[in-house]
Simulated assay, not measured.
Amino acid sequence: MKKFLLIVALTGGFYISEAAVTSWGINNERCIFMQQEKQYKKIKVSEVSKEAMDKIKAGYGSYTVKEAYKAEDGSYKLVLSKDGINTTVTFTPEGELIKILD
């Protein structure tokens, strides 16, 4: 537990949204590995780069972009809608698909 608190203290208490993975290291020491999810800030749909939007429209032209978010690394998280069903998708700054979240 002390190591976990130390990790939290050293990271400044950042929000960790991914699950922690526990394994056993050398001399049976318990190791906890955590991964921090990217933080996205809401932006206007019109603020998505033209290059990315053109590529996204080529693959998802029948969808409407309802919301847009951008991470510090330039990647986008978009809420796409079709037939009343919303789907959240992440894209690279160039508009390449990274992951469909739901």
Results as ranks from 00 to 15, higher is better:
Gly95Ile: 03
Leu80Asp: 04
Lys42Ile: 06
Lys66Tyr: 07
Gln39Ala: 01
Lys82Pro: 01
Leu97Cys: 07
Tyr60Phe: 15
Val48Ala: 05
Ile43Ala: 10
Leu5Glu: 09
Ser17His: 05
Val89Cys: 02
Glu18Arg: 15
Glu51Trp: 05
Lys77Pro: 00
Ala68Ile: 12
Ile56Met: 04
Phe91Asn: 00
Phe4Leu: 01
Ser62Ala: 14
Ser75Arg: 00
Leu10Ile: 14
Gly61Val: 04
Trp24Lys: 10
Met1Val: 13
Glu37Trp: 01
Val48Thr: 08
Thr64Tyr: 12
Ser46Leu: 10
Asp83Thr: 07
Tyr63Leu: 13
Tyr15Ser: 04
Glu94Leu: 07
Ile56Cys: 00
Leu97Gly: 06
Phe14Met: 08
Ser46Met: 11
Val45Phe: 12
Asn86Gln: 15
Thr64Ile: 12
Tyr40Val: 01
Ile100Asn: 08
Glu47Lys: 15
Ser49Ile: 10
Thr22Glu: 14
Lys77Trp: 06
Ile7Phe: 08
Lys42Pro: 03
Lys2Val: 10
Thr64Gln: 08
Thr88His: 07
Leu10Pro: 04
Val21Lys: 09
Ile56Trp: 05
Gln35Glu: 08
Leu80Gly: 00
Leu10Tyr: 02
Leu80Lys: 03
Lys2Ala: 11
Ile98Pro: 00
Leu6Val: 11
Ile32Cys: 07
Ala19Pro: 03
Phe14Thr: 05
Ala9Cys: 04
Phe33Asn: 09
Ala68Glu: 04
Val8Lys: 07
Val21Asp: 01
Lys55His: 07
Thr88Arg: 06
Ser49Asp: 12
Asp102Ala: 09
Thr87Arg: 11
Tyr63Lys: 13
Ile16Gln: 04
Leu97Gln: 11
Glu67Lys: 13
Glu37Asn: 13
Tyr63Gln: 12
Ile56His: 02
Ala71His: 01
Thr22Val: 15
Ala19Val: 08
Gln39Leu: 00
Gly12Lys: 03
Lys77Met: 15
Phe4Trp: 05
Lys57Leu: 13
Ile85Gln: 14
Val89Arg: 11
Leu78Asn: 03
Leu80Ser: 03
Gly12Pro: 02
Val65Phe: 08
Thr11Met: 10
